[in-house]
């Protein structure tokens, strides 16, 4: 974006609420920030109404800090817990009908490419497991089949949390939840594996227990989406409310999962790997 849109008109600068003044002065739009810098800049996600200990809220904070260029990032979401924080984010955010996020993102990305052919506008889908793996699976996979240059981030809390704790396709087998009164009958949907065979050039499976890894994955995914096509990041975001653990146990639960059913995995195409290596070399060069 042009920095003009966060440059207050001088006469009104004093009128702006404090949080906007902070954003103008200390926001992440002008220089690169990362997860490592959290606490040293005004984050783009403001206060939000998530439950205490919410893994989704944590992931959103991390991914928002990891955006390579928040000034040109647009997030498309879907109804669900994830929108509570995202509606407070200081960037353009949209959610409309449940599950249509990757189709909306496809249209949006293409239109922004038409209107701003020389700027990378990062269109990032951030949605929950129900939105991506159940009701929106067709639209998700087709955006990958078409190689849309968008990044899809699943905040996987393994449950329909916002509607009150129903089993989702990403819930674990055997888990007793609403609408699965005798336990879920089938395993987690292998969305990560499907991403591999559906045309994603990059995929990463991470948990909120490894914040830097989340940051790297999000950044890689967005950078690669600009050049090569669809990318996918699946973040485990445990839900203390519906999984009934204490809010102070979120990271512990995530850490356990990382060893158990949510091991870290990453894949990328050869050209994507070469590109990332080149970027790394360049930035090293710059630093030197």
């Amino acid at each position: 974006m042009s920095t003009k849109i966060i440059t207050p008109v001088a006469e009104f600068a004093e009128l702006l609420p404090q949080e906007y003044k902070d954003l103008v002065a200390h926001g992440p739009y002008n220089e690169r920030r990362s997860v490592r810098d959290l606490g040293t800049f005004k984050e783009i996600v403001d206060e939000h109404p998530h439950c205490a200990g919410c893994g989704v809220a944590l992931a959103i904070r991390l991914l928002a800090a990891a955006l390579p260029s928040p000034a040109d990032t647009l997030i498309v979401g879907t109804p669900g817990c994830s929108f509570f924080a995202l509606v407070q984010a200081a960037l353009n955010y949209s959610n409309t009908a449940f599950g249509n996020q990757n189709a909306v993102a496809s249209g949006l990305k293409r239109m922004l490419q038409i209107r701003f052919p020389h700027i990378h506008k990062d269109v990032v889908v951030v949605a929950g497991d129900g939105g991506i793996a159940d009701i929106g699976l067709d639209l998700t996979l087709h955006s990958w089949f078409r190689r849309e240059k968008i990044t899809t981030i699943m905040l996987d809390n393994e449950v329909y949390a916002n509607t009150g704790g129903q089993e989702s396709g990403m819930s674990r087998q055997g888990k007793v939840l609403n609408m699965a009164p005798q336990g879920k009958r089938f395993p987690k949907i292998p969305v990560f594996e499907l991403a591999k065979v559906s045309g994603c050039v990059y995929g990463a499976r991470v948990t909120v227990a490894s914040p830097h890894r989340v940051g790297r994955a999000v950044r890689n995914a967005i950078l690669l989406a600009r050049e090569f096509g669809s990318t996918y990041v699946q973040i485990y975001t445990p839900c203390p409310t519906n999984m009934k653990f204490s809010p102070d146990q979120t990271l512990k639960v995530a850490r356990k999962a990382e060893k158990d059913h949510y091991t870290h995995e990453e894949f990328m195409s050869a050209e994507a790997a070469a590109y990332l290596a080149r970027l790394k070399a360049e930035s090293k060069e710059m630093r030197e």
Binding site: Y160, T163, E167, N178, P181, Q182
Partner: peptide
């Protein structure tokens, strides 16, 4: 399928299934 404000009704129907009042139920 969950949607507010319907979800509770179908949760309870799921419970009826678990108790044997229905023969089949799924999300």
């Amino acid at each position: 399928y969950p949607i507010t404000p319907q979800s509770e009704s179908m949760h309870l129907v799921g419970d009826l299934y678990a108790k044997g009042y229905l023969k089949e139920y799924f999300r």
